Amino acid sequence: MIGNESWLHKDIDSTEVFPQGYIVYRKDRKTDVHGGVFILISDKYLSSEPPDLKSDDTSEQLWVKVQIIGSPDLYMGSFYKPPNKTDEDYLTHLGKSISRIRHSENCHLWLGGDFNLGGIDWNNYSIKQKAYNSKQCQQLIDICQDNYLEQVVTTPTHYTETSQSILDIFLTNNSSLVNKTEVIPGISDHEIVYIESNLKPRRAKKNI
């Protein structure tokens, strides 16, 4: 599970919020009670947080490596871009992390999150007319194209009385491994993106 806007802080233990049976990776926001990203991986599988991908507070991103049976490792990322973060550095930091992963080893890459960039037409990777924050929209398109990433969410994930937008996206460098993408009702003002894949994580050895 990839999550955004957890609203967690250091005084809230993961066991108070998340169910048993998962390893919880989280990056809480330090400046206020909002924001925060997390990733849940079943404790049946081998996973770890790569030290070289631990980010500072420049952007809200988190990366976990999952070992896959008979296939390269999977790097799974959670990213949140608040609507008010419109400076170029916010996405530049993400682009550097993706580039580091791609050039370090052969791997699968998944990145999910709320990017708040509804001005992108994902059918042809172009900017819509009168798009808000068009510079960051173009920046994200460039990151996708430079790193051979495909965005697989095609249904709006956020609705208002006057608009519908794809704000929550899922990027992958191998879309053939995604069997199904579906947008289902969420618990906030954003819908949930459900991804079904045929990747089989390597199981962890249990101590008896």
Rank of each mutant, 00 (worst) to 15 (best):
K206R: 11
K128T: 08
V152M: 11
E161A: 12
H108N: 11
E196R: 06
L171R: 04
R26S: 14
V66E: 02
N179S: 10
S55K: 07
V193P: 09
S99Q: 07
S78P: 12
L8W: 11
S55A: 06
F18M: 02
N179D: 11
H108F: 13
W110F: 15
T155I: 14
M76D: 00
I120F: 07
K180L: 14
I141C: 11
L140G: 12
Q67K: 14
Y75D: 01
D13Q: 10
D56L: 10
K135E: 09
K30N: 11
L91Q: 10
D11I: 02
N174L: 05
T58L: 13
V64M: 11
I12S: 09
R100M: 02
G95Y: 02
R100Q: 03
L167Q: 03
T181L: 10
N179H: 02
S42I: 15
G119N: 10
P185G: 00
K65T: 01
P82M: 03
I127D: 13
T172K: 13
K205D: 14
V37N: 08
K10V: 04
I68A: 08
Y25T: 10
T15G: 07
N116K: 14
C107E: 05
I98R: 00
L62E: 10
G118S: 12
W122E: 06
A131V: 06
I68N: 10
A204I: 04
L46P: 03
V66P: 14
P19A: 01
N84M: 03
